[in-house]
Amino acid sequence: MMTRNETVIISSPHLHAVTSINHVMTRVIYALIPGILLSVWFFGSGVLIQSLLAVLFALCAEALMLYLREKPLRLFLFDGSAVVTALLFALCLSPYTPVWVNFTGICFAIIVAKHLYGGIGYNMFNPAMAGYVFVLLCFPVNMTTWPLPAGITDQQATLLQILSIIFTGPSSLENFDSLSGATTLGWTKSQLSGMFMITEIRNSPLFGSFAGKGTEWIAVAWLCGGIWLLIQRIIKWEMPVFFIGTVFLISLLFYWYDSSIYLSPVLTLFTGGIMLATFFIITDPVTASATPRGRIIYVIGIGLLTYIIRTWSAYPDGVAFAVLLMNAVVPLVDNYTRPRVFGEIKHG
């Protein structure tokens, strides 16, 4: 604290808005709560266990790195950024993910993607997405085996069974196969390669009223949380709007071209990680472009890449890859999208 007697130079402005990194991160966490609750409803307490484990691991990894980098622990540990990273990472995981996968992913996210690049503000790649992609590549089977959403089967895993799967691995449970299945997008992909048509695939119990069973409502919850963030001015409207617009338009285009093998725009938007990404991942300011025009280019790029990877690659979803790929071109985009300065006359 500075008192008047010290000879310090305090520079104007002396007023400051009521805001801080912590303020921003806290609001992001609030906005995630409805979606987390719905996920628990549809996929069981595994979601909560994954989230809590991820937060715990993230805080430990963060504290370790801050200690090693000789940064003030209290100031940075509780800025909320590690918690947000952990939650976003955990929400990408299957609730049946073994604990070591969760741990590996978080360590990669916090230690490699965040701190080795210089910590908060300096990381080039979205830590949650980097961690997720890392474990997706290392443990593909664990990552794509999901519980069946509530409403499809009466048989739900008990808390003890879930704990057993998480801490000792899926092989520890004899009836694991009857408790798990593919995700909506994974199922669609495998059926399409089996020459089924969308209209047939659509009849699967994995589909709900307008998108994936259960996941459609979770996506709506992300949307609601996102709109609240927009009202709170934590995120900028341009990014979600241009991202959703891009995905909508390109999926509409292909849907018109051949609706038997391409998903409708609504199905595209409300399945997989698109809604979560729209409001919580592509809007991460650190890894997004910093100029107004650059931000739009950045999200359009993510939208196109997501659709391309989803539709034509071996992976059922592509948001995480798309985000990381666009993260890599942000410095370039920033450099070429500098706005015209007030009173500046552009030549040529």
Partner: peptide, 23 residues
């Protein structure tokens, strides 16, 4: 304003409020 300085998180709020349209 007495709060400690943290690293820039590139949120871009400053870009939005700059009356000279600087970065």
């Amino acid at each position: 304003n007495k709060s400690p300085e943290m690293p820039c998180i590139r949120c871009g709020q400053c870009v939005d409020v700059c009356p000279e349209k600087l970065l």
